[in-house]
Simulated scan of single mutants.
Amino acid sequence: MFCLLLLTIIMFSLMIDSNINKTIDLSPYFQNKQDIYISRQNNDDETTIQIDHFSIAYRNHVRFSFDNNKMIVISESEDYITKVNDFLLSPADSKVLCKDDKLQIGALLYIKTDYSLEPVLPEPGHQVSIKNLSYAYRQKFCQLRNFFKQQSCKVLFTNLSLDFSENRLTGIIGPSGCGKTTLLRLIGMLDQCDSGSIQINRIDISDQHRKTIAYLPQDDILSPYITVRETFRHNAIIRKIDHREIIIPQIMNHLGLLNLNHQYISKLSGGERKRVSIGIELLNQPKLFLLDEPTSGLDPDNTIKIFKILKELAVIGVTVIIITHHRGELPYLDDLLVLNQQGSVDYFGPANKYEGI
């Protein structure tokens, strides 16, 4: 998996190197008023982006239209970042490009001249940030649409729509009673919304997704009377995990639990118990991992250990969503969802851009 990640990063870098140095000459299209597209040609070639004079492609990212010496850029994809002067275009949004405007297409950045797009190159000795690349190219993994949920007489969510991206660690914060845990349980198929839909990888969520979703409540449910090793083995049998004699030691080693093999759960510290709980959920190799306040009650050292584990999971392709009450944990997050008392979204985006602290 790590080799696959490294290969992906290298291919992204090669793609940037091959495209970012090229000036896009627009003069023929101004004359002919011919639309052009930046597209991906097929599903197998995730990293090859090219300019076409037609719209037949696996996925169009942006379209350029020309009218009366004006150049108009139209966003064609919800999975691909398009910005004009740092203004984010939603799918089907359009904007006239003027001279000296900055246009960002994914991780590529251009300045518009009279009749061309000139690439903005990294300064000598600098490279395009891998962090920015992962943000630009990430795909939507879990999508919520038009959620409505009422509990007792209180409406928690009305017309709530959210997109959680793969390879990201997302935190949810908000006041008590705003519906954070309910939202996590809805995503994890442990509760049902009154109306709305959830998609995983663009497929409506169903029972087939249950094994790919892990949910860790705030309070663990580990039996205190058996050892760490027995805990893993017992849960692996219940979950019908194949090759468990190989998988269990691998997970325990990764989480630093091998030295606790024969330790009873009742003798573990809070941080150790939390790592065991996380390890149990990893037996199913989830693609979506939901955790309700995973660092609650932990000291700073164990908090760092838990976030290190969660970040590593995100890097290798797991979509991780957690609830937190501690603003001091925001630097560990990739994305942040802020809910208010009415269950509406106050902010959803990169955690390091949030200014509401």
Rank of each mutant, 00 (worst) to 15 (best):
R185G: 00
S176E: 08
I321V: 13
L291T: 10
E78Y: 14
I248R: 05
M189G: 07
N85R: 03
Q342F: 14
R59M: 04
L190F: 08
D93L: 02
N146R: 07
K305C: 01
F30I: 12
M1N: 11
K311M: 06
R40P: 00
S176L: 09
S197A: 13
I213T: 03
L109R: 08
I203M: 10
D67L: 15
L117M: 07
S223L: 13
I241K: 05
T113W: 13
G343K: 03
I241Q: 06
N42T: 08
R63W: 11
R244S: 13
S129Y: 10
D25K: 10
I322M: 08
A57R: 01
A214Q: 01
F64K: 03
N68W: 07
N340W: 05
V338A: 03
V62E: 08
P331L: 05
A351R: 10
H325A: 02
L183P: 06
S161L: 10
I187L: 13
K274V: 03
P175R: 02
D44V: 14
C193A: 14
I323F: 03
I323T: 08
L290S: 09
L290Y: 09
K70A: 14
N60H: 05
P350I: 12
Q50K: 14
Y264N: 12
G179P: 07
H326I: 08
S77R: 04
Y80D: 05
L222T: 07
D219T: 09
S195I: 05
D194E: 10
T113M: 13
A214R: 01
L169D: 06
G297C: 08
